[in-house]
Design a binder for these strands. Structure first.
Length: 373
DNA sequence: CGGGTTGTAAACAACA
DNA sequence: TTGTTGTTTACAACCC
């Protein structure tokens, strides 16, 4: 289960950001490196080709953006994409193992404007406030975060309690609510355990695929509300008083066509970095420089032209109003691949608290989940 | 105001 | 017998 040998593959795990929006969708994409990865790649997570390159000589360490996507990188990304057998999956739940938890609004505070890579204040000690998620969302996340996309009730309890300390100290009533939701909600389906399966009573629970979009939308709205409904739009927000060490819905991006762009990034906890986010309506890939000072236009690359387009054409959600953004990471950068004719106005992008161990654990979960469905 | 959703509590049966 | 799981009902609060 927690096999640490299952670390992130080179350029690793493709993480998905599933958005709902009304933006045009095309077959070609741009790649947007998001932020440097601050952790050293695990030896087992690197292919021979990438492992040969020390960090200092990595093309990604250069500011010259045209060098940022060499052929090897492209191939790695291609491989990564091809391995993504289910574009609708919540891979991000694994990849972004400790992504930002949604925070109660009262705990949001403005960050000082950061001109460059300035570490934020360490997050204060957690408090015990109730997470903003409904039980359906909690169950959904728990199940989606499981290797095989199915969990027994007890596993759901444990996931929630692990991720949301509020429920560790809460009385047992919430467990009743969980069971109540499982039984009552059409979103969840009970799977009888085969008799050969050992251990424990009860059944496994999974998410009904037809209800996934709705559940995702609930998550998106929850995050959207809690990340924007505080007149903090376009201002970097530091979520403090974090209650949950969980990663959940940060990949929800609010896309609008009217607001200036703010990109809030974190290369590793507890740093929170910000940068202005330029328009990408010219379909030009951009690179966020290693020190987060600016975004630089990138040259067109083979990667852009040849690698992702087919994948996006096959996007099963392309007609459903959902847009999937593929999230990659190399040993130094994270890449967000976007549909290129998207009038990309990010109202708020929040990517917080990338934790190395959690990501590696998430990677192992992904590996397990690869054959699970 | 009505309907739908969500959260909570409780009762109960089935099962390990 | 006990604790867990699953179902069902009831009610309150909230939102649209």
């Amino acid at each position: 289960m927690e096999n640490s040998s299952h670390t992130l593959p080179p350029f690793s795990s493709s993480c998905l950001t599933t958005l709902q929006g009304s933006l045009p969708f095309s077959s070609s994409n741009i790649s947007l490196p998001l932020s440097p990865i601050s952790f050293p790649p695990s030896p087992t997570s690197l292919s021979p080709t990438t492992a040969e390159s020390p960090h200092s000589s990595s093309p990604f360490s250069q500011r010259s953006t045209s060098q940022c996507l060499d052929r090897q990188s492209v191939q790695c990304c291609e491989q990564d994409i091809s391995d993504q057998d289910d574009l609708t999956c919540l891979s991000w739940l694994h990849q972004r193992g400790d992504l930002l938890p949604l925070q109660p609004l009262a705990k949001m505070t403005l960050l000082p404007q950061l001109g460059s890579c300035t570490p934020a204040q360490p997050l204060p000690a957690p408090t015990s406030s109730k997470p903003p998620y409904s039980f359906s969302s909690l169950i959904f996340m728990a199940i989606e975060d499981s290797p095989h996309k199915r969990l027994p009730v007890k596993g759901i309890y444990e996931w929630i309690a692990n991720k949301f300390p509020f429920y560790r100290s809460a009385t047992g009533g919430w467990r009743n609510s969980v069971r109540h939701n499982l039984s009552l909600s059409k979103s969840f389906r009970r799977i009888e355990k085969v008799k050969s399966q050992s251990g424990g009573k009860g059944s496994l629970w999974c998410v009904c695929p037809e209800y996934r979009p709705a559940l995702l939308e609930v998550l998106r709205k929850t995050h959207s509300y809690h990340s924007t409904n505080s007149s903090l739009l376009n201002k970097p927000v530091l979520l403090e008083g974090t209650d949950y060490d969980v990663p959940v819905v940060s990949e929800t991006m609010e896309i609008s066509d009217s607001l200036p762009h703010t990109l809030l990034l974190s290369s590793s906890a507890p740093q929170i970095l910000t940068t202005d986010y330029p328009s990408f309506s010219d379909n030009t890939p951009c690179l966020l420089t290693p020190d987060h000072e600016e975004l630089v236009t990138m040259e067109s690359t083979d990667y852009q032209q040849n690698t992702v387009s087919e994948d996006m054409e096959k996007d099963p959600l392309s007609d459903s109003g959902y847009i999937e953004l593929h999230y990659y990471q190399s040993d130094q950068y994270q890449y967000l691949v976007l549909p290129d004719d998207t009038e990309l106005d990010l109202e708020t992008v929040e990517i917080l608290q990338l934790d190395v161990e959690a990501q590696e654990a998430a990677g192992s979960l992904l590996d397990l989940a690869g054959g699970g469905y």
